[in-house]
């Protein structure tokens, strides 16, 4: 089970175990981590599951597809390491992954 750390905008962090194959969004929802809203339940429609992949990990995460990058252009504080957490699947290779959450999803 890959272990993932979610760090809130205010610095609070939570470390949780995720099922391999599940998404960073589902991991946050399952563990009641604030800051991920996920209105559409992971169908890449709402962009309310925005997160930043820690700089040390960004190269190890599969790149985003076009629909996702288009949505990411419109989130409130986009950065180079922005991702929609519902589109990032965790695997054992990502054990130790660190994810930062934005101040707002709207």
């Amino acid at each position: 089970m890959p272990r993932v750390t979610y760090i809130q905008a205010d610095g609070q962090s939570q470390e949780v175990n995720l099922e391999a194959g599940s998404s960073l969004m589902q991991g946050a929802v399952d563990n009641m981590i604030d800051g991920i809203v996920a209105e559409c339940g992971g169908s890449c429609s709402c962009a309310t599951c925005h997160c930043y992949i820690d700089a040390d990990w960004i190269d190890r995460v599969e790149p985003a597809e076009e629909m996702e990058t288009d949505l990411l252009d419109c989130v409130s504080e986009p950065k180079d390491n922005s991702r929609l957490s519902c589109q990032v699947k965790v695997s054992d290779d990502l054990d130790g992954l660190v994810v930062h959450l934005p101040t707002t999803q709207f």
């Binding site: 962009a47 629909m67 288009d70 949505l71 252009d73 419109c74 989130v75």
Partner: peptide, 9 residues
């Protein structure tokens, strides 16, 4: 339709 930016903005 297949226009996420038009939706978001």
């Amino acid at each position: 339709v297949n226009r996420p930016q038009e939706f978001m903005f």
